[in-house]
Design a protein around this nucleic acid. Structure first.
Lengths: 243, 243
DNA sequence: GGAATAGTGTCTTTGAGACAATATATC
DNA sequence: GATATATTGTCTCAAAGACACTATTCC
């Protein structure tokens, strides 16, 4: 039987602490990176953890996540306000924090390549790590990160989320590299191009003749993210899907 | 700045109540139904709400969800233990409950057509409602239910979840009806059949010559759910996708 | 036989994947 | 010119969708 069969009985509820944890990804030099913070106190002192913190009394979880993201990256509230934050899952195992009962709402965020975290406060102890061959993380954050990675990879198949990893203007080669990095596969360039351009609203060409070079080949045309949110039909990964 | 910049400070956290809410679906007479409970107390007294309740001190959210599901449906713990519970999202708006700060972890569950909820306790005030043209629900449960419906529809595309709506042995016509009901579309029977049978592990034929009739046509062969969890490639909806 | 449902076969169109060929830049 | 990258074009194959046709039951 529930503790409050008639609905919510204010005397029956068990108090929990509720936090948000963020899996913040970026693609840097064709490798996936994750933002981690060093723990200053026990437990896991000196270890690395996902950025996050408590939800304040008058905040929703998403507001808390944006606030924490701004604190840890030094980005302005305005910039952070425009990003897509993906709520992943909520982690509730009774012993996931050894000190008390903590429930954590996990979010994933995708950022274009940024300079090292700057700004004061929490950002001081934050840095980017390459996502593969990370050591163990504090608490169940390794698990959260793995779930986040799976979700992002799956979402790439049927949403336009990948453009969030790119700067405001980007080439199709850069967008393709994002896909290849996140999925860990190589894609055929002509086919990728055809597919992206055939999807209305995925990307839109940047006007004038401005172009940009990635090295010493032919300069590529620039695009920006389009208005669409979903991919239609999906851009399927070469191999399997995630259930 | 976070309330606890050094990690979790047991003196800084704000206590929340944490509940689970369940969107329990079934298909009955080719129409989607949802399990709702009548509220016995304020607020929303006499209104209808999703089943759910507080997480107990030593429970995970999923354990709480299974416990509540067993209570509300009268199903045994064993039966409920074998079902797929899909964690949807966590709802955290500060004023979603007028009395106190309540965070709710929402789950979706799919059941084959069952008799009306039986058993004692909470089940007494629970009943199935047809999903379309429901009135307003208590709290933000209307929103939760809409999100649950979207998620289930999307999951049908690339998982074998639809078999959870069917009894242990079912015909392909019944399975197709489940898809048609959830998606609200008509599917071509020969194509559906070809697609399902071509997906390894989706369904497996039941041995002997036993067959079953749905009315007065030719009896259909029986199948049971296969071992696969994911559909490969996906079974896409005729129209659009959910972002 | 007629109606209803189950199941098979076939044709067409669409999209994915492989890959050749061309274009434009740097060195 | 050599090399590197971008872009276009073409061919093939697999899957989706439309739909005609056969099979088996109840009335």
């Amino acid at each position: 039987m529930s503790a409050a069969p008639e609905g919510y009985d204010p005397h029956a509820f068990v108090p929990f602490a509720v936090t948000v944890d963020l899996a913040v990804f970026t693609v840097r030099e064709a490798r996936l990176h994750v933002l981690l913070v060093e723990r200053g106190g026990e437990p896991y002192k000196g270890g690395w953890a996902l950025p996050g913190g408590f939800i304040l009394p008058r905040e929703s979880a998403e507001e808390a996540a944006r606030r924490e993201l701004a604190e840890e990256t030094g980005l302005t509230q305005d910039t952070v306000g425009g990003l897509h934050l993906e709520q992943l899952r909520t982690y509730t195992e009774p012993d996931r924090d050894p000190r008390m009962r903590v429930v954590s709402v996990a979010y994933a965020a995708l950022l274009p390549d940024l300079p090292e975290p700057r700004g004061g406060g929490d950002a001081a102890r934050a840095r980017w790590w390459e996502a593969r061959d990370l050591g163990d993380l504090a608490f169940d954050h390794g698990r959260i990160l793995a779930d986040a990675y799976d979700r992002v990879g799956a979402k790439f198949e049927y949403t336009c989320l990948a453009t969030q990893f790119c700067p405001a203007e980007f080439t199709l080669g850069e967008l393709q590299q994002v896909y290849e990095t996140v999925w860990g596969v190589e894609l055929d360039r002509p086919n990728f191009r055809r597919k992206v351009l055939a999807t209305p609203g995925f990307v839109e060409a940047v006007e004038g003749p401005p172009r940009r070079t990635g090295g010493r080949g032919k300069p590529a045309a620039l695009y920006r993210a389009g208005a669409a949110a979903a991919l239609h039909p999906p851009l399927l990964r070469p191999e399997g899907r995630t259930g």
